[in-house]
């Protein structure tokens, strides 16, 4: 279970989060929505301790993340996969080694038969062909990098997964593959996930519940139906604008396919 309790965070005079609370139950997928720059990535980084809250507590798997010693934090992190918004691939290592580094069990990491098989499997799960393994990150397209980032995050079979905009920059087919993967990891392996997104439709599909981050606070939490039925003007505003955006994008894609 992931619990954010009354989190506040500021950078100098820029108050990013102001009393944010959110619970994610075991085996649940929660989507975190919000406009650009609202603090979605910052929130996600608090969960695995890459950033510390100024006040409030973060509890993951029963551990108080901000208070953990370094080796305890490392141990916890090996159970949390993190998909970085911009990939953050190790660019001096080939794709295979990138994914292999995601295998957090040291014995499995050194077991050649195991890791080779696991790298192949992870590439297949994110819809990449096996020959990508020998390429370097600089040789990949943006969408391919994103998917290698996802493959690296799932390679260690984590119990928790934090996705920072996993489908942004992907074509609709691959976005569907990733959404499907997120669902399968939850249904088949019981993975607990937080999916940061500003794609309202995609997140309604994968998430059990949706939270809207708005002006440094969680403005609304609930199932897709509850959020859609919300009378809160901020929520409505955000949904309308975003649904409009995705309609425009969908039309654009149709036009391109039709032409």
């Amino acid at each position: 279970m992931i619990q954010l309790q009354n989190i506040s965070k500021r950078f100098l005079s820029n108050v990013v989060l102001d009393g944010v609370s959110l619970d994610v139950q075991d085996g649940e997928t929660v989507a975190l929505l919000g406009p650009s720059g609202v603090g979605k990535s910052v929130t996600l980084k608090m969960i695995n301790g890459l950033l510390k809250p100024d006040s409030g507590d973060v509890i993951v798997d029963g551990l108080h993340v901000p208070k953990l010693k370094r080796h305890e934090l490392a141990e916890l992190r090996s159970r949390i996969g993190y998909v970085f918004q911009y990939g953050a691939l190790f660019d001096s290592d080939p794709v295979a080694e990138n994914i292999r580094l995601g295998i957090t069990n040291e014995d499995q990491y050194h077991d050649e038969a195991y890791w080779k098989e696991r790298v192949k499997e992870c590439l297949r799960l994110v819809n990449l062909s096996a020959d990508v393994a020998d390429k370097y990150p600089a040789e990949l397209s943006g969408g391919m990098k994103k998917r290698v980032g996802i493959a690296r995050a799932i390679a260690g079979k984590p119990k928790y997964l934090l996705y920072d905009e996993p489908t942004s920059g992907l074509d609709p087919v691959n976005a569907d593959v990733i959404d499907g993967l997120i669902e399968r990891l939850r249904d088949e392996l019981g993975v607990t996930s937080v999916v940061v997104s500003h794609d309202v439709r995609g997140s309604f599909r994968v998430a059990d519940r949706v939270a809207l981050l708005w002006q440094a606070k969680i403005r609304a939490v609930g199932t897709a139906e509850e959020i859609l039925a919300s009378r809160d003007t901020a929520v409505q505003q955000f949904l309308e604008r975003d649904l409009e955006m995705s309609l425009i994008q969908a039309e654009g894609n149709q036009d391109r396919h039709g032409a």
Binding site: N48, L76, R77, S78, I80, Y82, L89, F90, R152, G156
Partner: peptide, 13 residues
Amino acid sequence: TEQIDALESLGRS
């Protein structure tokens, strides 16, 4: 480019 964060996120030092 957050590669150091990425390493830490994998529990690696």
